[in-house]
Design a protein around this nucleic acid. Structure first.
Lengths: 184, 184, 184, 184
DNA sequence: CATGAATGAGCATTCATTCAT
DNA sequence: CATGAATGAATGCTCATTCAT
């Protein structure tokens, strides 16, 4: 990860924020003041680049879980706060939601990263909150993580859409037994 | 609706389900066994085609709201059931979630249709459920509709993702006052 | 040339004036409130339609030659006036200049009509003006007619281009022996 | 001007001569033995390509004006010769006349080039010829340049059309006061 | 290691023309 | 005779990816 490597990461972060994670490769290379081939050398697939760009923040999120568990008054508020940190992270990334899309070429690695790094953290948080009796609904950490991700999808540009509120709603739902719904 | 009109609708429904609403025009035309120009004649813009494909089901959803209000034991379960009908509708459409994306060229019309036809229905359901004291959280019908849509996004292909459960969680959340979350 | 025939002619005249002689066939048919096939029945090629549209005015121009020869003070002013009548005719037709273009599919017939009807008229005018000693330059009627047509080409939209003045300049040049110019 | 730059210019010159300046992009690329994208890389818009193809010759024309003024016996013959050099240039380009057409997408740049580089040259020539009393007709350099261009339009393929002679006629007309022609 | 030129597949869209009804 | 639905070739343009220098 030499000089060009970092320049590419910075450029990619900026371009992804502006034009989405699916932005043209050349745009990123250009923004980094680097030839396309250099980009390909450092990050053979788009996935690699995306992961590299976000790894730091994801690490931060991972670290934040235990910290919140220690500092928050209850495990439930820890869950709530952590989930909102995840929202903060996703919120600035235009179109990052496609990560969950199986098809979406080039997001597999990020998907994996989410699962590897964040799911365990959320699992611990949820377990604790379940232990304290606050969370009763049956959900897997993966499901919740993904649901939050979906709620933030494409948020920018729609002033009527309040992702934060929706996520809170979702987490609040965890406190109750879920009614059974069967297709009529 | 001449000779190929229906064939095109069927083909589009099938292709959209498989490859997403953004599938190549030619693919749809081919699936219908028809020249591209024929498709263009019937549906000048992609939006027109998308709307035409889903209009029937959306009409059904719109009609279902009042019906559920009458038949369900409580307004809240009516909300719950209706929302799940919406999930049923979205669930089969790969990538229909992009509808909410402002950028996505060609989805404006569908977005409009959602807002025009479904938001009012959900508004009535929510109002009733609020009247009976079941729903207390502050959410606009538009926000809720969109949130549900987001939760179903890209569902297919990920067996671990249970959109139905997540949506129930969200709706359950409506029964509680929402805690205030401020960014640290 | 029944009812539809005339409707097509009127529509074509209007459309040609607006969008040029190369306007889409469907546009003409639509303007006439008629199916495309009907247009094709009446005018198998675009050329046929174009010719039919302008035949009347061309007949008028043809008739005008002898008339001017009789009414104008000198044969030369008759030439000048007639040529300007031709300019008036061409001036309103966007892109009619392509008539002279050999390639231009669909203009052969109009080209022929020009040659058949107008060249003889201009020939008579020029002969008379030559007889009176006013015209001395060597030019064939065909060359002059075409040159005038070229000068009017694409006139609309360029306020700095004064076709009328240029045509006058050209005709004025007829009064002098032409210097020999050889490529260096 | 990398590997294929010159090949593209040569190919374009050849294709433009054959099929006109509006020839399909792919055709030019193919003639150069090059992918379309390569062409687009070198010349983002058609205009750029057209300008590049003709810039050299236009520069030559621009330089030729003062030279002729110095070498020719009279300013008038300088005008005449220069205009014929312009004819030589245009003569080989099929359909270059469309340059004057405001509509014609992609010719703006060439039009601009003509106006910027050639109009001033012709202006000087005309001024000199006016100073020596040879040119008396009122014409702007732009009008004359364009008129010459129009006269050469589509010349190839019509053996009966002698652009050179017509242009001479036009220039000869400059020596006389123009009669007033008003529409009857 | 870095470059960026070259490639060509892929997609949307328009239009002249034919043909079954 | 009239209709207009259907056709598919043609064209401009973008972008991910490879490769010679």
């Amino acid at each position: 990860m030499q000089r060009n490597g970092q320049a590419l990461l910075d450029a990619a972060a900026e371009v992804f924020a502006r034009s989405g994670v699916g932005a043209p490769v050349r745009e990123v290379a250009a923004a980094a003041g680097v030839g396309v081939a250099t980009l390909y050398r450092h990050f053979p697939t788009r996935s690699d680049l995306v992961v590299a760009v976000y790894r730091h923040q994801i690490d931060g999120l991972a670290a934040s879980g235990p910290a919140l568990l220690a500092s928050e008054p209850t495990p439930f508020t820890a869950v709530l706060r952590w989930v909102h940190e995840f929202v903060d992270f996703l919120g600035t990334k235009h179109g990052l939601a496609r990560v969950w899309d199986g098809d979406a070429a080039g997001f597999t690695a990020l998907h994996t990263l989410f699962v590897d790094r964040l799911v365990p953290v959320l699992a611990d948080l949820l377990a604790a909150a379940r232990g304290s009796g606050d969370v009763v609904a049956e959900v897997t950490p993966y499901q919740l993580l993904r649901a939050v991700g979906d709620l933030v999808a494409f948020a920018p540009g729609d002033p009527d859409h309040d992702a934060r509120r929706m996520v809170t709603l979702l987490v609040t739902g965890l406190r109750q037994e879920q009614p059974l719904i069967r297709p009529a």
